[in-house]
């Protein structure tokens, strides 16, 4: 199969993957809390319902921005699997995230605006890591594309255990999990109401949710990069990491943005940077 087909498959299947993941997440979370929980397909029902609901827009610019956010999120995955340069992919990913910030900031509401500001903080917390991670992956595999990394004879995770650990830490931000869910959380019970999405309704919220499903699939693809010998192994690693995220989500409270920044940068610098330094020192 050509990379183009992979890209197309990502665009088509990632929402199914992300939605099912969210469904499993909700059931597992509920069980950890001693609840029965919703049916597996509940996220799909939710998005279907959101699409049917009347949409109220504070600022008409929000909708094109959110469609672009969804589009870029899908494009990030498509570009990754389609064989584009890894570092370029990370920049497209950052752009996708930025569009959500712009959409939230466009609503003239204090909660939404404060959510947008906090999302900028978490972007600041996570983006350096993703760039560093891709640099590291490119360095150890001497390849710069998804296919190239998968074809490499080096098992990335063995070379980059620090990067793997830091990835699990930083992915918490992207998966909107406690303790790092400061700008938006899965349930709207926080000091910023629903943060970023406070002023989004109906299909706008559905776009955000769909984009999040793409994002989950994208993070899974990143994990596959780290376990480049075998795709099933990468999926398994992602499942383990995700289960860990859910457990931590159910065992911590939300922390404040200062600590989010400090802990993710500490993870990036110590784990990721230390790992790279070690490789450098060992002369590879």
């Amino acid at each position: 199969m050509t990379p183009a087909i992979y890209a197309l498959l990502f665009v088509l299947l990632a929402p199914v993957f992300g939605g099912l993941l969210a469904g499993i997440d909700r059931i597992v979370s509920a069980r950890m809390q001693g609840r029965v929980g919703p049916p597996l397909l509940q996220p799909f029902y939710d998005v279907g319902k959101l699409l049917q609901k009347r949409t109220r827009q504070i600022n008409p610019i929000a909708e094109p921005l959110l469609i672009a956010h969804l589009g870029y999120m899908a494009a990030t995955g498509a570009l990754l699997l389609g064989g584009t340069d890894l570092i370029f992919t990370v920049f497209v990913y950052a752009l996708a995230a930025l569009l959500l910030v712009l959409a939230a900031g466009s609503a003239n509401s204090p909660f939404s605006f404060a959510g947008a500001e906090r999302e900028l903080v978490v972007l600041l917390a996570s983006e350096p890591f993703f760039i560093l991670m891709m640099v590291a992956v490119c360095k150890v595999t001497a390849a710069s594309t998804f296919g190239g990394v998968l074809a490499s004879s080096q098992l990335v995770a063995v070379q980059l255990p620090g990067v793997l650990l830091a990835f699990v830490v930083v992915a918490t931000i992207k998966l909107r999990k406690s303790p790092f869910d400061i700008s938006i959380s899965h349930h709207p019970h926080q000091e910023l109401v629903s943060g970023l999405t406070s002023d989004m309704s109906g299909r706008l919220l559905a776009y955000v949710e769909l984009a999040h499903w793409y994002e989950s699939a994208l993070l899974c693809a990143f994990m596959v990069l780290l376990f480049n010998w075998s795709v099933p192994l990468g999926l398994l690693a992602f499942a383990v990491a995700y289960a860990l995220e859910v457990l931590v989500d159910n065992a911590t409270s939300r922390i404040k943005w200062q600590l989010v920044l400090r802990s993710t940068w500490a993870a990036t610098l110590l784990l990721c940077g230390g790992n790279l330094l070690a490789l450098f020192v060992m002369g590879r």
Binding site: M32, S178, H189, Q190, N250, A251, S253
Partner: peptide, 16 residues
């Protein structure tokens, strides 16, 4: 209180 600082699981436990 647990819910306010984002600890959903603890909230469920207290209410249980």
């Amino acid at each position: 209180g647990a819910d306010a600082f984002g600890f959903e699981n603890l909230f469920m436990h207290c209410w249980r």
